[in-house]
Simulated scan of single mutants.
Amino acid sequence: MSTEKCVVCKGGGTIELLGAQCPFCNGTGEYTKTGESYLKSHICQCIFLDRKTCPLCGKKCHHDTPNKPKILIGPV
């Protein structure tokens, strides 16, 4: 069993934003390469909260939608 946690649900097994089981780890909370790939290229979900911070990754808004604001974040 891996000690690494799912990067999307942070090991909790559910995505709090949706209140549903995490589809990347199937609710186990274990690390998956699929979850890591998703988080690297995800569309910002700030529209669900404050339109300033993405609830999935915690970074400033960087969504790729026609909505405002649209702030691009460069590589870290």
Results as ranks from 00 to 15, higher is better:
residue 35 G to I: 00
residue 25 C to L: 07
residue 5 K to Y: 08
residue 63 H to S: 09
residue 14 T to W: 05
residue 52 K to E: 12
residue 34 T to I: 06
residue 28 T to S: 15
residue 36 E to W: 01
residue 31 Y to E: 07
residue 46 C to S: 05
residue 65 T to Y: 05
residue 72 L to H: 13
residue 34 T to R: 07
residue 63 H to M: 09
residue 65 T to R: 11
residue 72 L to Y: 15
residue 67 N to G: 12
residue 3 T to C: 07
residue 15 I to A: 04
residue 67 N to Y: 15
residue 11 G to W: 03
residue 72 L to T: 15
residue 18 L to H: 13
residue 50 D to P: 10
residue 11 G to Q: 05
residue 30 E to R: 11
residue 64 D to E: 14
residue 5 K to H: 10
residue 27 G to I: 05
residue 31 Y to R: 10
residue 57 C to A: 04
residue 76 V to L: 15
residue 58 G to K: 09
residue 11 G to N: 05
residue 49 L to C: 06
residue 63 H to N: 10
residue 63 H to R: 14
residue 13 G to W: 01
residue 12 G to H: 09
residue 62 H to G: 04
residue 59 K to P: 00
residue 73 I to R: 13
residue 71 I to H: 12
residue 45 Q to A: 08
residue 44 C to Y: 01
residue 26 N to W: 07
residue 58 G to Q: 09
residue 16 E to N: 11
residue 73 I to W: 12
residue 53 T to S: 07
residue 60 K to G: 06
residue 47 I to N: 04
residue 1 M to Y: 12
residue 18 L to V: 12
residue 1 M to F: 12
residue 44 C to R: 02
residue 50 D to L: 02
residue 56 L to G: 02
residue 46 C to V: 00
residue 46 C to I: 01
residue 52 K to R: 11
residue 55 P to A: 05
residue 26 N to L: 12
residue 16 E to Q: 13
residue 27 G to K: 03
residue 63 H to F: 07
residue 59 K to N: 12
residue 21 Q to F: 07
residue 28 T to N: 06
residue 38 Y to A: 03
residue 49 L to H: 05
residue 40 K to M: 03
residue 37 S to G: 06
residue 69 P to I: 13
residue 59 K to G: 07
residue 46 C to R: 01
residue 23 P to D: 11
residue 70 K to S: 15
residue 51 R to F: 03
residue 39 L to C: 05
residue 71 I to M: 13
residue 54 C to K: 00
residue 29 G to S: 08
residue 37 S to L: 08
residue 18 L to S: 13
residue 31 Y to N: 09
residue 53 T to F: 05
residue 6 C to I: 09
residue 8 V to K: 02
residue 27 G to P: 01
residue 33 K to W: 02
residue 15 I to W: 03
residue 15 I to D: 03
residue 39 L to W: 00
residue 22 C to D: 06
residue 37 S to H: 08
residue 75 P to S: 15
residue 13 G to Q: 05
residue 52 K to D: 08
residue 16 E to S: 12
residue 18 L to G: 11
residue 21 Q to S: 11
residue 46 C to G: 04
residue 47 I to K: 09
residue 57 C to Y: 00
residue 25 C to A: 07
residue 56 L to W: 00
residue 51 R to P: 00
residue 5 K to S: 08
residue 32 T to G: 05
residue 16 E to V: 04
residue 67 N to M: 13
residue 8 V to S: 04
residue 70 K to C: 15
residue 18 L to K: 14
residue 2 S to E: 14
residue 55 P to E: 03
residue 26 N to F: 10
residue 20 A to T: 13
residue 37 S to V: 10
residue 34 T to F: 02
residue 60 K to N: 10
residue 70 K to A: 15
residue 42 H to V: 00
residue 30 E to C: 09
residue 54 C to Q: 00
residue 4 E to Y: 12
